[in-house]
Design a protein around this nucleic acid. Structure first.
Ligand SMILES: [Mn+2]
Ligand SMILES: [Mn+2]
Ligand SMILES: [Zn+2]
Ligand SMILES: [Zn+2]
Lengths: 144, 144
DNA sequence: GCCAAGAATAGGAATCATTCTCATTAATGG
DNA sequence: CCATTAATGAGAATGATTCCTATTCTTGGC
């Protein structure tokens, strides 16, 4: 966890951005999670009182700086997680009932299979592929 | 297109729901599209004046009845399309720049490969798999 | 150590997609 | 044609997110 903070601090420094207390708090909560988290979830997970407006700003600074990645989950709310260069490329399991999101890292051959599929499926489309989202929907243990 | 309307009408009748003009308009616009559409896009595509509140209600009736499926796209807005029993199972190409969404149907072996990956990746998670989203991100011809 | 200048934060207003409420209008079936 | 029930339109309400502004740090130069 200390190395994470150091990597991030260094990454930010190159862009003249500093790791302030608010940003450090947000980063810590996200690093501790096992899947992408919403602003509200992060706020709830943290002991400090963090106003949502400040939290959103911290998250957006870190996202723009390339430390976090943000995506809208299926419920339509934004979820934040460590960027791929920090967390590694991975996919998600999503509970269709409660919305919980869990990381799942593919094995090398699995990811290769996915990329192969992506290429073939996009082939005739005229799109230039920049990435993919492979998300598994289901019921989590709690909701089953 | 006439058969579509008949199928839908029949499907709705079984649930005591009728295909009113507003619902027919929404259905037609969605059926004519080559990818999932937002309420605003549907409203713009249609010549009639359709209040958004009414359009949203029509979309939600059709979705609850199983005629449409709705998901939040990466920009966080809801997109509607024909349900799989009408459109067939398929995936999407998403433009990361302008947000346009285009259908892409996998070949049988591709879909089998995807399902196989889904099973293996969810295996140790405790989730009961109910579906998957395989979305290809890229730049559309217009944004390239 | 002290200060001005720039950056970060808190709080609240504003925005935007979506849903709700309620009054009005249309369809149905006898 | 009437009474009942469903559908529609208009606008208010909601909830996530962003924007604005005043206040509070930080920091680099003295
Ligand atoms: Mn993740
Ligand atoms: Mn589609
Ligand atoms: Zn769940
Ligand atoms: Zn585009």
């Amino acid at each position: 966890m200390q190395d994470l903070e150091q990597s991030v601090r260094q990454h930010l420094a190159l862009q003249g951005i500093r790791l302030t207390p608010g940003r450090r708090t947000a980063l810590g909560a996200i690093a501790a999670a096992d899947g992408p988290r919403t602003a509200a979830e992060i706020q709830a997970a943290v002991t400090d009182i963090v106003p949502l407006s400040s939290l959103y700003r911290s998250l957006s600074v870190l996202t723009n700086a390339g430390v976090l990645s943000a995506q809208h989950g299926p419920e339509g709310v934004m979820r934040f997680e460590l960027a791929e260069w920090l967390a590694g490329h991975h996919h998600h399991l999503l509970c269709v009932s409660c919305g919980v999101a869990v990381d799942v890292a593919p094995y090398r051959e699995q990811e290769q299979a996915i990329e192969h599929l992506v290429e073939r499926m996009a082939a005739a489309s005229g799109f230039v592929v920049t990435g993919h989202r492979f998300e598994i929907e289901g019921l989590c243990e709690a909701c089953r």
